[in-house]
């Protein structure tokens, strides 16, 4: 038996919107730790890892570890039927081939349940070791989204370079080139608007902008984004989900042949 009650139901709606274009089908894993997902896109270039810790739920009952295969497009269709202020409860019985999403309006005057069919998915779980990164950039998530969107109108790839000068995002395309440099900026009053660059050594890596733009669909989940870079490692783009966990996107770099 599984019953997870999330008062801030809009978080789950936002999570789905940020992953459904990257991954079609995925297993949601439920354990004492929390509600999690790890899935790769079909070309094995990008991976999403989600964790919503059990403590973040108002009620969290998971009698035994359960993996539920869901079509994310269908799940998104159902969650779109929940109001932004609704409380969402996820329910499943052991051995059942369905999951139920229950939506309660804040005033309890409307209660809806949507039952969705589960599916068997051959999951390819990857072991992601802890790594030391050459550089970690934290910046406003909206600023990062804006940069990715702007650069994708010029080129297909972005070179992210971190030096002691700052972090540079560069692209080139048929019509020309673009470079955007963000310098460390901790002087602003609001910490979520600051840009913080931790650099152990300079690093420069190339990534497909198509994926970066897809990751930025998680922007509504967090004011800040953290970009961790190391040469010859996938970049990690992380959005912290307040008091609950995170959504992390891993993207393999492009290399010169």
């Amino acid at each position: 038996m599984l019953e997870l009650r999330l008062v801030q139901g809009s978080l789950l709606k936002k999570v789905l919107e940020s992953v459904k274009d990257l991954v079609t089908d995925a297993n949601f894993d439920c354990s004492a730790t929390g509600f999690s997902l790890q899935a790769m896109d079909s070309s094995h270039v990008a991976l999403v890892a989600l964790l919503l810790r059990s403590e973040g739920f108002e009620h969290y009952r998971c009698d035994r570890n359960l993996s539920m295969g869901m079509n994310l497009n269908n799940m998104s269709k159902m969650l779109k039927c929940a109001g932004n202020d609704d409380i969402i409860t996820i329910k499943a019985d052991d051995g059942s081939d369905t999951v139920t999403f229950m939506f309660e309006s804040p005033t309890q005057d409307k209660i809806a349940d949507f039952e969705m069919k589960l599916m068997d998915i051959d999951s390819e779980h990857l072991g992601i070791p802890e790594a030391e990164y050459h550089a970690i950039v934290r910046m406003p998530s909206a600023e990062f989204a804006r940069i990715c969107k702007d650069l994708s109108s010029i080129g297909d790839t972005v070179v992210i370079s971190v030096t002691k000068e700052g972090v540079k995002f560069s692209t080139r395309g048929d019509i020309g080139t673009a470079n955007i440099v963000c310098r460390q900026n901790t002087s602003v009053d609001k910490p979520e608007e600051s840009t913080i660059i931790e650099m152990n050594e300079p690093v420069s890596l190339t990534f497909a902008l198509r994926y970066m733009n897809s990751f930025t669909k998680a922007t509504p989940l967090a004011n800040s984004v953290t970009i961790s870079l190391s040469s010859e490692l996938p970049v990690v783009v992380e959005y912290k989900i307040a008091e609950m966990g995170y959504i992390r996107f891993y993207l393999a770099p492009k290399i010169e042949d």
Binding site: M40, S43, H44, V45, A46, L47, E124, H125, L126, G127, I128, P129, T157, T206, A208, L233, P234, Y250, A252, P253, K254, I255, E256, D257
Partner: peptide, 14 residues
Amino acid sequence: MQRQKSLLSFFEKS
């Protein structure tokens, strides 16, 4: 010419 690396060349299946 640039080549897209796969995640599978960095991480192992568990």
